[in-house]
Design a protein around this nucleic acid. Structure first.
Length: 199
DNA sequence: AGGAAGATCTACT
DNA sequence: GTAGATCTTCCTA
């Protein structure tokens, strides 16, 4: 499968978030291959984005958002590891959160990791997919453009996909534009929630 | 020490 | 579908 070069991730985070839909996330672990089609993403910016980890400026824990595009940025929220891929124009700041995938290879391993049987609830959320694919802080900062990486992104099969958008999920204060993107009608897209709750 | 955070699970109105 | 408890880091005081 064709792998994407760094250039693919150099661009506006929202554009990269859309471009990632339909691509394949490949995880190599326990000498096995686990993979899934990316069906839902969100774009995050830098200091002008109140929902971004980089909102308060550059710090040790968000340094990767400033790093070269194509690397992972993984952090914990409410007890869940969330997988982002660094994406931005040179000299800027940003990342794309992978919110859901549709399992392809290694489904029996994902079932074991997740401790659920139901196919639909295997990877339909950012915390769930990390657990299913055994993604933790150990993979923070690795390069998904390298063929030998334990986590990489490759070309999906040729198909028409229809992209829908909405506001980002779960954020306290969102930007005016819609920055969540997902494949329309896909069953593995996480359930939409009502708008950001008020303070 | 305390609290917030890109969430998830369970147990029901 | 929604409410509430609970998940684990890392920041701020």
């Amino acid at each position: 499968m064709k792998i994407f070069e760094r250039k693919f991730y150099e661009g506006d985070p929202a554009a990269v978030a859309k471009a990632l839909l339909g691509k394949i996330l490949v995880r190599k672990v326990y000498s096995k291959i686990l993979s899934g089609k990316i069906v839902e993403t969100e774009a995050y910016y830098g200091e002008q984005d109140p929902a971004s980890r980089a909102y308060k400026g550059r710090m040790k824990f968000n340094e990767l958002m400033y790093a070269e595009p194509g690397r992972t940025f993984i952090y914990m929220v409410h007890g869940n590891w969330l997988l982002n891929i660094v994406a931005h124009f040179k000299g800027e700041v940003g990342a794309v959160l992978i919110r859901a995938v549709e399992p392809i290879l290694g489904i029996e391993v994902m079932v074991k990791n997740r401790e659920v049987e139901n196919f639909h609830s295997l990877t339909n959320g950012p915390g769930k997919l990390s657990k299913a694919l055994a993604i933790t802080k150990d993979l923070n900062g690795i390069d998904v453009t390298k063929r030998k990486s334990e986590l990489r992104v490759t070309e999906g099969k040729e198909e028409e996909i229809e992209i829908s958008s909405s506001h980002r999920i779960g954020v306290r204060v969102d930007l005016p534009q819609e920055l969540r993107f997902f494949i329309r009608e896909n069953k593995l897209v996480s359930r939409a929630r009502r708008n950001p709750r008020r303070k």
